[in-house]
Design a protein around this nucleic acid. Structure first.
Lengths: 135, 135
DNA sequence: CCGAATCCACGTTGATACTG
DNA sequence: CAGTATCAACGTGGATTCGG
């Protein structure tokens, strides 16, 4: 993993590399950002990070999400290969969701962002206060 | 910076730390994710990463963005302390935008995400193809 | 050159009701 | 238990027009 103050240059290169690919559909960054940026995906990923869950179990842990969005977000995550879905034909049926290896691999880079958010939020709030007070 | 296979546990802790704070407004993660996830913020940040730009200069480099969203996104970034704005009262007026130290500090953790996106996009596309073909 | 202001189309999300 | 289906509300972003 890269370190140091000028590591930024490397990341800028990667950004260019990622955003200039004329790949199928749209660029890798937008694909990932659209998922990460949506309202529930990362909350689900981080919840599943500690172990598999069943549908209503997830719903109980995250009461704010609607049933529709829980289903939809899980489908999207499954489609992207971040989450796997196993059906046990018990009666009544039971479905278990868990992170795939790919899903787990997202936690570390995402964690760096969380870390940055935690460290930076005081500065951000300060900047916001200053900005708002002028206006 | 943390490494290794079980670093995930640390990041999960940080996630909990960040999401359980009953801070002013909403949690740090949502604040940061809302910015990062929007349509233009990171594109602007990465464009400004290589040096300051003037308004129309940015507009020329990113033709797809509307003037409204360019202004609005720059305002939001400025409010969060990620971008600074300097006005030169020449005639006609000229305004220069550049990343702050905080803005620059975002590049590295964001870069990890880009790196993940670049590495993972083939797997993701594969997963999507498999998912779609069943349906 | 650097915006502000307005209007509107669209996608995302939520609420509610129903089903195997 | 684990969904689907339908409808409505809301916010984001784009197009356009105007101003200092």
């Amino acid at each position: 993993m890269l370190q140091g103050q000028d590591a930024a240059a490397i990341y800028i290169e990667r950004w260019v590399e990622a955003t200039t690919k004329p790949e199928p559909g749209i660029c890798p960054v937008r694909n990932v950002l659209d998922r990460i940026g949506d309202k529930w995906s990362m909350l689900l990923v981080m919840t599943l990070a500690t172990g598999p869950r069943r549908f209503n179990q997830l719903h109980r842990e995250i009461p704010d999400i609607s049933q529709k969005m829980l289903t939809q977000t899980l489908r999207d995550l499954q489609r992207d290969g971040l989450v796997s879905r196993r059906v046990f034909d018990t009666k009544p049926p039971s479905v278990e969701y868990q992170l795939t290896a790919l899903g787990h691999s997202l936690i570390v880079p995402f964690g760096h962002l969380i870390e940055w958010a935690n460290e930076s939020i005081p500065v951000i709030n300060q900047a916001r206060a200053r900005y708002d007070e002028v206006a």
